[in-house]
Design a protein around this nucleic acid. Structure first.
Lengths: 232, 232
DNA sequence: GCGACTTTGTGAAGTTACGCACAAGCGATC
DNA sequence: GATCGCTTGTGCGTAACTTCACAAAGTCGC
């Protein structure tokens, strides 16, 4: 029953939104804003204001009624909750286009992720420098992970090498994996994996686009025929 | 009451999983498998078997009791549902690392997305060829969109150019946008936007990693004290 | 063709997430 | 220091999603 650690257990849906709030809030902070209401933040994030308040309330109540939230404190709280109050060491596996894009992706270092190494199994890519980081051979992975106490690994390899990459990460002692390869990788219990498939998002989009098109076609059909059975 | 088109309206959560099923099924199909049970697919996708069955049932009932699902037919159905039974023309805005990675990303063309152009506003990048596609100047966008009837645009620009990119896409007539820039872009009603922030996923991971660490620390503390109240 | 076995499809219960609506709390003003 | 206006925090009804559990429907061997 200790007062402030027992509150924990934040819903997944909320955790998924916190990074977005964090980003919007940081933007505002840079713009010199010092205070923000749930309503304003909700507008920025394109969500419901009550949801924002409930989300923030899981971290404790840091707002002031009649006023809003202190931006700086709020940012601090969210960062702490997400574990961004200290630096995370990450490694990237695969020095192809995607690996290089990730290495150069500003959002990582900005938020306290330090890229400790980028690895590839192809000798042709090894020793090339991308985004200021020298590409290492995959065999050096365990050493770097141990030395720099890396806990997060990013898989940016082709699909067929992803499982091998995951195995190597796990064996090296990494406990969280972000997988950009379009396959489901198997890992032992206790290892977290998140998968981001760039084409999945595209497919969700085209599903909606598809629906929009058929809906429009049906409308036209109804208008043309003057008949109700448009779904035939 | 026409029997097979009226069923529609698939839950969002299901739509988000269909691409994953599709991919796993396609893999199996290439491997020569002809039939699959909901249980097998559930194992592959790391989800509950009942969920798989319910998901598939939204497209109609294509399984055979006692046997399972015909792989080829199932793939066909999912593809049709996702609108992958015809080719989608897409454009990519931003020819930086990410834009190039996306252009080279196999998953796109494999699934019927045809990259009709990659655009950048930087003259230095224009006319360079990446992944077999010549980079065009952003001003040529409306023309290409109209000519090739492009309906999906991908934003792979830096954050500060993303809103401009979105505006240009909308003005050119694109109706669906996949946004990789770490900002929320504003678009008129009727335009779909999906946002993929590579660092959001990383933050969700580190939240869990964080929890894991503090949980472990608490366990150690409790073990040390010999006290039962582990959730303090 | 019958019984044993398998796997689907789906009601219904359980769980999680959403959003309304409003009391409670804070600042400002007089 | 009382009143007013604004914004938070949250209880609660509703909706969406998940999972269980089982009848229905099929295959297979004899």
């Amino acid at each position: 029953m200790s007062p402030h650690r027992s509150r924990r257990r934040i819903p997944d849906a909320t955790v998924a939104r916190l990074p977005i709030y964090l980003q919007l809030l940081t933007e505002q902070l840079e713009r010199g804003v010092a205070n923000i209401s749930s309503d304003e933040l909700a507008t920025l994030a394109a969500v419901n204001a009550a949801k924002v308040r409930k989300d923030l309330s899981y971290m404790g109540s840091y707002g002031t009624r009649g006023v809003g939230y202190d931006l700086e404190y709020l940012v601090y709280q969210i960062r702490r909750e997400l574990g961004l109050d200290h630096e995370w060491s990450i490694v990237i596996l695969g020095a192809g286009h995607l690996g290089q894009a990730l290495t150069g992706y500003g959002g990582f270092s900005e938020r306290g992720y330090s890229i400790e190494g980028i690895f590839d199994i192809d000798d042709q890519k090894v020793d090339v420098t991308v985004g200021g980081v020298r590409v290492r051979h995959l065999d050096e992975l365990p050493q770097v992970v141990a030395q720099r106490s890396v806990s997060i690994g990013v898989i940016a390899t082709p699909a067929e090498s992803a499982q091998d990459a995951a195995d190597r990460l796990v064996k090296s002692g990494v406990t969280s994996i972000l997988n950009f390869a379009p396959v489901v990788v198997n890992v032992p219990l206790g290892i977290s994996v998140r998968r981001v498939d760039l084409s999945v998002e595209l497919q969700i989009l085209s599903y909606h686009e598809q629906r929009r098109l058929t809906a429009a076609a049906q409308l036209r059909a109804v208008a043309g025929e003057g008949v109700g059975n448009a779904t035939a």
